[in-house]
Computed example of a mutant assay.
Amino acid sequence: MPLTSPRRSALADQVIAQLRAQITSGEWPVGSRIPTEPELVEQLGVARNTVREAVRALAHNGLLDIRQGSGTYVVATSELAGVMNRRFADADPLHIAELRSALEAEAARLAARRRTDHDMHQLTALLERRELAWESGDAESFVAADGSLHRAVVAASHNDVLTQLYADLGMVLISFLRADVGERLRPESYVDHARLVAAIRDRDEVRAAAEASAHPYSCHVSEDGRHVVREGSGG
């Protein structure tokens, strides 16, 4: 007897689409806990089994992580990002640093060529936010602010393929930055990104690429084999 593909109900597909939209739009950011199953049932007006099927489908695709006793969390913004997270979870930290350097150097070079006044306004604001996060001493806030600045630099390249690839790799890169920064911020590890933003503002492609690629290469792997240690880390 030949195997046939089971058909998912149209209602379940609609719920999956709605939940995916919440994730991809940023309404449910990566790292956040989504509403509980009873809350989703009430909000969507569907049966518990339909909600459960939709959540499991998105977990299978790598967008959600179901943690027993804690809740369900957003771990990726697309199916490809979920695959990237699983594929590179145990990658060599030095290789991740080198990949980040290559992507960000090219993005910064293109940003210096193509940036708009709107891009510069955003980069300036995010640079200030990053500096304030560092001054606050909150490591998690700094990691988030640093990631936002780097994503804005890539977006300013106005290369849709590069921007999407960087977004899909985003949690891989952020997880290694989080491990590198650790639980507390160290003054000796701060990297000033003001020169990077200035190079993009001045449309200096060579200097922008150099600033973007400088920090990840001054690194080595720590004795535990998991952390990238740099003379100047901090993003």
Rank of each mutant, 00 (worst) to 15 (best):
A108C: 10
M120T: 07
S25C: 10
R115W: 05
G170C: 01
S25M: 10
V191G: 02
D204I: 04
H158Y: 10
Q122H: 14
R56S: 07
Y190K: 06
D160Y: 09
R48Q: 09
V55F: 00
L80S: 11
R56V: 05
D65Y: 01
E104V: 12
V41P: 00
L110S: 08
S136W: 09
T77Y: 06
W134A: 03
S5G: 05
R130G: 04
G232Y: 09
V229H: 06
G26F: 08
E135M: 13
D119W: 09
E37M: 05
D13K: 11
E211R: 00
R184S: 14
E188Y: 05
L110N: 04
A105W: 00
S78H: 00
R129V: 10
A179S: 14
A108R: 03
R201H: 15
D168H: 07
R87E: 11
P29F: 14
A12M: 01
L44W: 08
E128G: 14
Q18G: 15
R184G: 05
E39Q: 15
F176C: 07
A12E: 11
G71A: 07
Y190V: 06
V153Y: 05
D202C: 02
V74K: 00
L63D: 02
V154I: 13
A10H: 10
E183T: 13
A133P: 06
P216A: 06
I174C: 09
D119H: 11
A209D: 07
E104W: 07
A76L: 06
M171E: 15
V191K: 01
R114Q: 15
I16G: 03
